[in-house]
Design a protein around this nucleic acid. Structure first.
Lengths: 338, 338
DNA sequence: CTTGTCGATGAAATCGCTTGCATAAAACTT
DNA sequence: AAGTTTTATGCAAGCGATTTCATCGACAAG
């Protein structure tokens, strides 16, 4: 056990505890010579700083809590990357929890981070029912920022314009002549961004006097498998869609598989448009037409704001809605003349 | 500020601090009635447990530290999932750090987790130069388990048989008649698993009297881009390979892109074999022939062992080498007769 | 030769919880 | 009824840092 504490280092160095503390964390406030003496003693004793004790006594934390549905979904894994980059750069530490799209787990994770007194919280979306708890935490000096969607002007968020970018994608599909368009949505009960994307779909369809057949709309978690199954169901309809808009690239990849398995081709027979532009999308065959979202940037901005807040003591105030633009690649083609 | 502490809860409930502590964390040791009184007081005061104070005083932590190169690499994101599932199930919390394949960052992360006194550490591979620090942490009662590779019998690990599974993949390629086979390896300086996979390649080539042209071997981080560039370089050789074995599915996907861009087809002109079988692999076009690794299981087993150790107080002892088997899908074909 | 300022250090009080030990009351034993 | 457990609770000493306040020279200013 290198159980050495600051006390023993102090004894060994022949100075007081306070001097050791200062020498180690604010060397400029201590005589050069003493600093050296202390460092030497610390090394000799294999002293390892105890961060728990440190932040308990200083009432400061250098940890950020992150709640994402799951790191298995690339879009969130990318958020995480942005966050981690910043944390490592500013030597903060990063704690994560997965909500699995379950509001209950989400709340549990929030509470756990509250108990841990993290310096700030980043959430990739939030169930509306849990938003009030964010206030509770804020009252305890734990600020939060929500990614992907705007949970209301009382909160910090770094969102994208889900509604508009989904509209753009839909309009593109319609421009290509598609009239029967399916939508593979995210599990919209639990996230505003999904509601927004879905309502963009409904709105655009209505604007173009296109029937918005509910059989063509499916809400599900963003996995390849769900995408495949959702699309398969659509293709089995008596009048199947000629295009599909997916709220997530994983759904889109799954959908493409379903199209292939039905003996059809993408994009010749069915057009597929995704959302997020995750790493794989540009490398897929064919390369995926999708909406590019600044996942890493969102994460980085959120972390930056929270860290700055922690260091300054001032509550952060970030409310941005970033642009997300359609990137046209190879999975959409003009509808075949009928 | 719901700054209420246990002390104030005690006052409000008319009992002592110790009783509150017990009522909250070990209700069975306290009279039913008192527990209720305490809970009520806690609720009334918006009391929130302070985990830092708790674990400082109890000298116990319920956090696991995880170090992976980056959550952007699916293989590690999957480890993470397995870990998180277990953590959430056992209500442990999970902290992560990214090493970016840099030994320096890796060590920094280890030290940070040491300072935080996590209950255990999980690492997705470890640079040999950092292995000794694992001992240091172990002496302080912080056990670790290494994933993917066996860092030596003095350590805990949950590895896969990199050498053998790479051999299997290579032999398969040779069975198909390929003679000029490239290898896109991981950055082998920093991880034993890469060395093992690479040496399997060399061994199999030698056993079959096939030339092992060093121009056909490239070591790089497992990104799509690196895969593409590595393969492009190979294809430009005067005598290009007819098959490529990639140490990671991301490299394989990138390699496939390079093949396409060179105007060739997979698998007709060039066979590609990956490693890991990440989520996307089965959904790719064509579906990727690869070596399936139990990424989630590895993560889960490691977390399980560490949590059990934390709860029992006994140091864990896990040394497993799991099987990884070749799964044949659509990216490998017989070599064309020359 | 005072007095004020500054730099370097120490003493001691926290921070918010856990827990070993002690005690009192309640519940069993014979 | 006296003795023995058991159960419920309180007291107070930590856990390992940080930080406020005080002290003590030294040194520049008046």
């Amino acid at each position: 056990m290198s159980r050495a504490t600051i006390k023993e280092v102090a004894a060994k160095a022949g100075v007081s505890q306070s001097t050791v503390s200062r020498a180690l964390s604010a060397p400029h406030r201590v005589k050069q010579e003493t600093v050296l003496k202390v460092r030497e003693a610390a090394k000799a004793l294999n002293y390892v700083y105890n961060a728990m004790a440190g932040s308990l006594s200083s009432r400061r934390s250098d940890a950020l809590g992150v709640i994402i549905p799951s790191s298995a979904y690339s879009a969130f894994a990318i958020n995480l990357m942005g966050i981690q980059d910043l944390c490592s750069e500013r030597s903060f530490s990063c704690r994560i929890a997965a909500s699995q799209f379950q509001p209950g787990k989400e709340l549990l994770a929030m509470k756990k981070f509250h108990e841990q007194r993290v310096a700030g919280l980043i959430m990739a979306g939030i169930d509306p029912s849990n938003a009030p708890y964010l206030q509770t935490m804020a009252e305890d000096g734990i600020p939060a920022v929500v990614l992907w969607e705007n949970p209301g002007e009382a909160f910090n968020y770094i969102a994208i314009d889900n509604y508009r970018s989904a509209r753009d994608a839909l309009k593109y599909l319609i421009t290509l002549g598609h009239e029967r368009i399916a939508m593979l949505s995210g599990p919209y009960a639990c996230a505003r961004r999904n509601v927004e994307r879905l309502s963009a779909y409904r709105a655009v369809m209505a604007e173009h006097d296109l029937p918005c057949d509910e059989a063509l709309v499916r809400a599900q978690p963003p996995t390849f498998l769900h995408g495949k199954e959702g699309m398969r169901a659509c293709l089995r309809l008596s009048s199947p869609p000629t295009a599909v808009f997916c709220a997530d690239d994983h759904l889109a990849v799954g959908a493409i598989r379903a199209v292939h398995e039905a003996g059809l081709r993408v994009p010749e027979d069915v057009s597929v448009c995704g959302f997020d532009d995750v790493d794989i999308s540009a490398y897929f065959n064919p390369p995926l037409t999708t909406v590019r979202t600044p996942g890493q940037l969102m994460g980085g901005m959120a972390a930056e704001a929270l860290i700055a807040a922690a260091e300054s003591g001032l509550p952060p105030r970030v409310q941005y809605t970033l642009d997300a633009e359609l990137v046209i690649r190879g999975t959409c083609a003009p509808a075949k003349a009928r």
